[in-house]
Each structure stands twice: as structure tokens, then as C-alpha cells.
Amino acid sequence: MPHQKLWNPYVAGVALGLVLLASFLVMGNGLGASGAANRAAIGAAYVVAPDTVGHDPYFAKYVGPGKNVLDDWLVFEVLGVFLGGVVGAYSAGRLRRGILMGPRPMPAWGRLGLALAGGILMGVAARLARGCTSGQALTGGSVLSLGSWVFMMMVFAGGYLAAPLVRRQWR
């Protein structure tokens, strides 16, 4: 069962909280994730279509002459998150290429398609809400921001509302 070699959730919660606390103490801000994905996407788009992206007023904040879209704290932080995931999984003996799915067998493309679709929804949502579960819920929640608590409650609400629709994927 997946519980093997996973930390006790309460211990893990405290550990995660200490990392977050360290981030506040060292940097004065919390952790994040979606901002880096946004920057990476804009950077990639700028390489492919510099004119379209460069002249878009929304993207002009990020790219343009003399600006490096990847020169950002979040980008380096998420690089660290990736490496932390690698080392965490490897040292627990579960670094393995594969596709994770629920107990019901389903075609790989179906699972990957759902992952992509969910990702797209979250990408839009994270831009709209100015952060994701890391940047808004976790970080903003810890400094008691009203909007972050609203966001967090709505994430759980959205998850529980949509869960029956995709039940076949997970149960």
C-alpha cells in the first residue's frame, strides 16, 4: 500500500511547516510553484514566437529586451522542488518512470489526457487567483490572508464537488 515509507502525515505536516517557517525567516515570503510554471511557459513561448509574445501587453511584464523571464526567485525555488522530489523519491526507493493511476486499469493516454486537462484548468485558476495551493493556500494561509483562506476553502469545495465525476479514475 502507498502508506509504506510515507511519513506520518502529522509529522510531515510539522516538517512542511518548518520549511515554510524557514522560508519566511530567510526570505520574508513563503513558497510557491505556479508562478515558475507561468514564467517557464512564457519563456518557451517567447523563444517560439518572440513577436507575438513580446508585443502582448500582458506578457511584456515578463519578456522583452534586457529581461530574462527565468531570472526569478520562484524559478530557482521550483528547480529545488524538482530536485527535492528526485532525491526524496530515490532515497525511498521509488524513483521509477511510470504512470500512476487508481486501482481500475485505464489506458495510459486516458490518464495522461486527464492529467493534462486538470493541469490546464489549474494553470488558468492559478493565474486568476494569483497563486496555487503552495503560494496562496499554504503561504497566504499561514499569514492569515483573507483571500488565501477563501481560496483554500474553495479548493476543497471544488475538489469534493468534482470528485464524484471522476470517481472512476481513482476508486
Binding site: L79, G80, L83, V86, V87, Y90, S91, G93, L95, R96
Partner: peptide, 24 residues
Amino acid sequence: FAGLLVPLAMELIGRRRRLPLAAL
């Protein structure tokens, strides 16, 4: 960090725990 310390840690962990070394 990413180019030396992390892979070094992985190689040391892998040697101790007899894990196959991932291509990463």
C-alpha cells in the same frame, strides 16, 4: 547544488541501499 551535490548524494545513497541508479 544541482550538478554536483545532488547527484553525489544520489550515488552515495544508491551504493549504500543497493538501489539501481536512475538515469537522472
